Amino acid sequence: NQASVVANQLIPINTALTLVMMRSEVVTPVGIPAEDIPRLVSMQVNRAVPLGTTLMPDMVRGYA
């Protein structure tokens, strides 16, 4: 089972991601792999991401 990136807090739209906003968790469906967390830092979300939501590739500008 692969860990995915999950929002550690509410992340408002257009917010640049920081390490404290994300955690890794084994979830279904699988989202962005946890090993990509360092790559996600400073990328912006293109929608509001509620606490506990799995980050999907289409939620992060420039990721996919």
Rank of each mutant, 00 (worst) to 15 (best):
N1Y: 14
N1D: 15
N1C: 06
Q2D: 15
Q2F: 10
Q2P: 15
Q2M: 14
Q2Y: 09
Q2R: 03
Q2L: 15
A3C: 14
A3P: 07
A3G: 13
S4D: 00
S4K: 01
V5P: 02
V5G: 02
V6M: 08
V6E: 01
V6Y: 02
V6N: 01
V6P: 00
V6I: 08
V6K: 04
V6T: 13
V6D: 01
V6W: 01
A7D: 01
A7M: 05
A7Y: 00
A7S: 09
A7L: 03
A7P: 01
N8T: 15
N8V: 08
N8C: 05
N8I: 06
N8W: 04
Q9V: 10
Q9L: 15
Q9I: 10
Q9C: 05
L10K: 07
L10I: 10
I11M: 04
I11L: 14
I11P: 01
I11S: 01
I11E: 00
I11H: 00
I11N: 00
I11F: 00
P12K: 10
P12G: 08
P12C: 05
I13G: 15
I13P: 10
I13Y: 15
N14D: 14
N14F: 05
N14R: 07
T15C: 06
T15F: 06
T15A: 11
T15H: 08
T15I: 05
A16W: 10
A16E: 09
L17R: 00
L17T: 00
L17K: 00
L17H: 00
L17I: 10
L17A: 00
L17F: 02
T18R: 08
T18D: 12
T18Q: 11
T18S: 10
T18L: 06
T18C: 07
T18W: 03
L19G: 11
L19C: 06
L19N: 07
L19K: 10
L19F: 10
V20W: 13
V20K: 12
V20D: 13
V20S: 13
V20P: 08
M21K: 03
M21Y: 06
M21A: 09
M21I: 03
M22K: 00
M22V: 13
M22S: 01
M22I: 13
M22P: 00
R23N: 07
R23L: 11
R23H: 09
R23V: 07
R23A: 12
S24R: 05
S24V: 13
S24F: 08
E25W: 04
E25A: 08
E25N: 05
E25T: 07
E25M: 04
V26W: 06
V26G: 09
V26Y: 11
V26R: 03
V27P: 01
V27W: 02
V27A: 10
V27M: 13
V27K: 07
V27H: 05
T28N: 11
T28L: 05
T28R: 03
T28M: 05
T28D: 15
T28W: 04
P29G: 04
P29D: 12
P29S: 05
P29C: 15
P29T: 04
V30D: 15
V30S: 11
V30M: 15
V30G: 09
V30H: 14
V30Y: 06
G31W: 02
G31S: 03
G31A: 04
G31L: 02
G31Y: 02
I32E: 00
I32P: 00
I32G: 00
I32Y: 02
P33M: 13
P33R: 06
P33A: 13
A34M: 12
A34W: 08
E35C: 07
E35L: 05
E35R: 04
D36Q: 09
D36E: 13
D36P: 00
D36G: 06
D36M: 07
D36K: 08
D36S: 11
D36L: 08
I37F: 03
I37Y: 03
I37G: 06
P38V: 13
P38N: 11
P38T: 10
P38F: 10
P38I: 14
R39A: 09
R39W: 08
R39I: 09
R39S: 09
R39N: 05
L40I: 13
L40P: 00
L40E: 00
L40K: 00
V41T: 08
V41F: 05
V41E: 09
V41A: 07
V41N: 04
S42T: 12
S42L: 13
S42R: 06
S42K: 08
S42Y: 08
M43W: 09
M43Q: 11
M43Y: 10
M43P: 00
M43R: 11
M43C: 03
Q44V: 10
Q44L: 10
Q44M: 10
Q44P: 11
V45K: 00
V45R: 00
V45I: 10
V45P: 03
V45A: 11
V45M: 07
N46F: 05
N46A: 13
N46W: 04
N46H: 06
N46T: 12
N46I: 15
R47I: 10
R47H: 12
R47M: 14
R47D: 08
A48P: 08
A48E: 13
A48M: 14
A48I: 14
A48T: 11
A48Q: 08
V49R: 03
V49S: 02
P50W: 09
P50Y: 09
P50L: 14
P50H: 09
L51T: 13
L51Y: 09
L51D: 14
L51E: 13
L51C: 03
L51A: 11
L51R: 05
G52Q: 04
G52W: 07
G52P: 01
G52A: 10
T53A: 13
T53W: 09
T53K: 09
T53I: 12
T53V: 14
T53Q: 10
T54A: 06
T54F: 02
T54N: 02
L55K: 00
L55S: 01
M56P: 01
M56R: 07
M56L: 11
M56E: 08
M56F: 09
P57M: 07
P57R: 05
P57A: 14
P57S: 14
P57C: 13
D58T: 10
D58P: 08
D58G: 09
D58V: 08
D58H: 08
D58I: 06
M59I: 08
M59G: 03
M59Y: 12
M59K: 02
M59V: 05
M59C: 05
V60A: 01
V60N: 02
V60I: 11
V60H: 01
V60L: 10
R61H: 12
R61M: 13
R61E: 09
R61T: 14
G62D: 14
G62T: 03
G62A: 06
G62I: 04
G62H: 15
G62W: 05
Y63E: 04
Y63D: 04
Y63V: 04
Y63W: 12
Y63I: 08
Y63F: 09
Y63H: 05
A64R: 10
A64N: 11
